[in-house]
Amino acid sequence: MAIPLLIIVGPTASGKSRLSIEIAKFYNGEIISADSMQIYKYMNIGTAKVTDEERQGIPHYMIDIVEPNVKFSVAEYEKMAKPLIDDIFKRRKLPIVVGGTGLYVDSLIYIMNFSEYIGNDDFRSALKNIASVLGNEYLFERLKMIDPKTYSKLHPNDLRRVIRALEVYQFTGIPISVYQELSNKRINPDYNTVMIGLNYRNRETLYKKIDDRVDAMIKNNLIDEVVNLLKIGYNKYGTSMQALGYKEIVEYLEGKVSLEEAIADLKTKTRRYAKRQITWFKSYETINWFYVDDYSSFEDLKKNIISFLAGKLKFK
């Protein structure tokens, strides 16, 4: 019997976390995060982690599992998340995967052979050195020339994945997007998956949500969070510190930009990231989109989705 699996995706600030908690309460579910930055400890404000109070007693997994200086791959995510899905289901609860990292979602719903992606430590180190001298944008533009599909889905600050894409092409002659497309044709039969996508018809409404979230992060002491991470000794060039919100604040702390400029830059980059997330999720053929601004309230949205799910999978 295939395991029932609910996946909730959407751009940043679309309300995924709040919705997932309400659905978990209604359908006796537990939540597995699919966010590549929420896996890191001590990075709470900039990654918009749900607080203990906001979780309302619903168990959350794949959050705060590694130190900020530890590399973490999508293959490792798959290895850890799948047993969690199995365990949740064995306890007669609904596994709910929630997040905005498309590669993490792909690793669950598709059969992906990560061993076929050849790697080379020396090549990766050389590219990191290039990025430190010429900037992330330089490598990002190289990726655009060889693999525009992957380029459109990534951000220059996602240096690890940019380097990975360049590495795969260098040693196989084939863009990583081709490997992913081949993998994507093999649906994982272990799960009976229903995917919900949250979005806004009016893009400016989403952008206003993003701007408000950034302002709230600053108000909630994002600057202090970044200062403390640097004091602990985490490298500003590390993967985790390249996340949206952290790199921009580091540049402010180093005097390279004013606080106003850092905030404006973060808002712009987050909007671009949201656009890339939407592009990624639109590639899922079986996704069921719900537009938040079609509803007069969150309660109406929640009721509509709960009603929709009742006809798709029997969770209770």
Rank of each mutant, 00 (worst) to 15 (best):
T101S: 00
G197V: 00
I232M: 13
N202C: 03
H155D: 13
S177G: 05
R276M: 08
Y246P: 06
K303I: 10
L139Q: 11
K219N: 08
T193C: 06
S297D: 09
R201M: 06
E285G: 10
P156D: 04
K82E: 14
K185A: 15
S73L: 12
Y295C: 07
N288V: 09
Y200W: 10
V50H: 12
K82Q: 13
K153L: 15
L244M: 01
T47F: 08
I39K: 00
S283E: 15
G197Q: 02
L259D: 06
K90Q: 07
D211M: 07
E285I: 11
A48R: 03
Y284N: 04
P95L: 05
H60K: 08
G29S: 02
K153W: 15
I176P: 06
Y138P: 03
Y291Q: 02
N113A: 03
A81V: 14
I249F: 04
K144G: 12
I118H: 11
E30H: 11
L229G: 00
I23T: 10
L313H: 09
D224Y: 07
I3L: 08
K236H: 12
Q277R: 10
Y110M: 10
S132L: 14
M80I: 12
G100T: 04
F298T: 01
G135W: 12
Y252P: 04
H155W: 13
K314S: 13
R164W: 11
M145R: 15
D300T: 06
G57I: 09
F281E: 00
L222Q: 02
E141F: 02
K275E: 15
N129S: 10
E78Y: 15
I31G: 12
H60N: 11
T12Y: 05
F72Q: 10
L266N: 00
G173A: 11
I96K: 02
M145A: 15
K236M: 13
K71C: 11
I63W: 08
D190I: 06
L230Y: 00
T51S: 01
V50M: 15
P156S: 02
I118W: 07
